[in-house]
């Protein structure tokens, strides 16, 4: 083992690569969204693979993976979207524990499916904790690495490895336990919030339309195209404003779907505005936020109306799948 330099060099930052963890709690009421990894399943598995504790900070890269040069010995895992990955030009598998040494360079080719890569490094990315989390919120430049996406030449601090018996190098997550990355993502959704503002017919259109993900789809929200909403006639209530889509400004749940102009709904995601005055018609259940996180511009999504019980079952299913991964990794043996 070489001495720990405790750094990884970002040779190329990619398109939009940020430091993320499970996100910040407790600041929503000040207008600060949780941020955090958008595909929580892939993020958690990446940490498991390298033996990091749950909640360690990892990298989330959208569309274009970064190029990383290691300066000490680490274990690394890549999960999330599908892309050919190399270490020093040699192809290496994803969803598997990799070992790198000082000077090794991890590189990505173009994505073949999905939208977001997760890269966990043993020890975790050790940027300072800010308001209880290491997650980056780029909109106001807080948290993460200097509050921004990574740029060429950045040097990221890495932490000390904490877990005594991490998974063995080469341990892998079997295909069946990885998320499918379908061309049309099905998003289970609890209809409600301000859905009273739009007609029943519009809500039928909402759940029967295949919506296309537009170019305006990022960590703040996904703007979708494909149908339109008609509003119910009304006398605007005091304070709401005169537009048919306006309501008295209220809090927006993460995953809620707002309909500003009636034609392009927006699904609000991890870095979204926390409140505002547009009607929202429902909320994507937490388990399926992982799915929309892997939908890319040009992909299609569909909304399926579900109740709370189904939402909680979906959540429990995801949890059970994570536990199956944990068990499977344990069965493959610990790191020597």
């Amino acid at each position: 083992m070489s001495t720990r330099s405790g750094e990884v060099v970002v040779v190329r930052g990619g398109l939009h690569t940020t430091v993320q963890d499970t996100g910040r709690d407790g600041y929503y009421s000040l207008g600060i969204p949780p941020s955090g990894a958008m595909d929580r399943f892939s993020y958690r598995v990446a940490n498991m693979l390298v033996g990091n504790p749950d909640g360690a900070a990892a990298l989330e890269a959208t569309y274009v993976g970064p190029t990383l040069e290691f300066t000490d010995d680490r274990r690394v895992a890549v999960t999330g979207a599908s892309a050919p990955v190399t270490v020093n030009g040699e192809p290496v598998p994803t969803w598997q524990v990799l070992e790198v040494r000082s000077g090794d360079v991890l590189e990505f080719s173009m994505l073949t499916a999905g939208a977001r890569l997760y890269i966990a490094i043993s020890g975790g990315v050790a940027v300072p904790v800010y308001l209880g989390a290491r997650s980056t919120y780029t909109l106001t430049g807080l948290g993460g690495f200097e509050g921004r996406r990574l740029a060429d030449g950045d040097r990221l601090p890495l932490g000390e490895e904490e877990i005594a018996d991490p998974p063995r190098v080469g341990s892998a997550v079997e295909e069946a336990l990885r998320p499918d990355l379908p061309d049309v993502a099905l998003l289970r959704t609890m209809i409600g919030l301000c859905s009273y503002r739009v007609t029943e017919e519009s809500m039928r259109v909402f759940t029967s339309t295949e919506w296309k993900v537009t170019k305006d789809a990022d960590r703040i929200g996904y703007r979708l195209h494909g149908g339109r909403f008609d509003f119910v006639d009304r006398e605007p209530p005091h304070g709401a404003g005169s537009d048919p889509a306006n309501v008295v400004d209220l809090g927006y749940p993460l995953g809620s779907i707002q309909v500003p102009g009636g034609d392009e709904p927006i699904v609000l995601l991890n870095d979204a505005v926390t409140a505002g005055g547009y009607a929202t018609v429902g909320t994507v259940v937490s388990a399926d936020l992982d799915r929309i996180a892997q939908a890319k511009t040009g992909d299609r999504v569909r909304f399926e109306s579900v109740d709370l019980r189904t939402a909680l079952e979906a959540r429990a299913d995801r949890h059970a799948r994570l536990e199956r991964v944990r068990r499977a990794l344990r069965e493959q043996g610990a790191h020597a």
């Binding site: 959704t189 609890m190 409600g192 919030l193 209530p237 005091h238 304070g239 709401a240 309501v247 008295v248 209220l250 809090g251 749940p253 993460l254 995953g255 809620s256 909320t283 994507v284 259940v285 937490s286 709370l308 939402a311 909680l312 979906a314 959540r315």
Partner: peptide
């Protein structure tokens, strides 16, 4: 009382401001 997915509860006290 309404659910904003499984992670939020939304409570509307009135549709008009007061």
């Amino acid at each position: 009382y309404d659910h904003g997915g499984d992670e939020f509860v939304f409570v509307e006290l009135d549709r008009a401001m007061s």
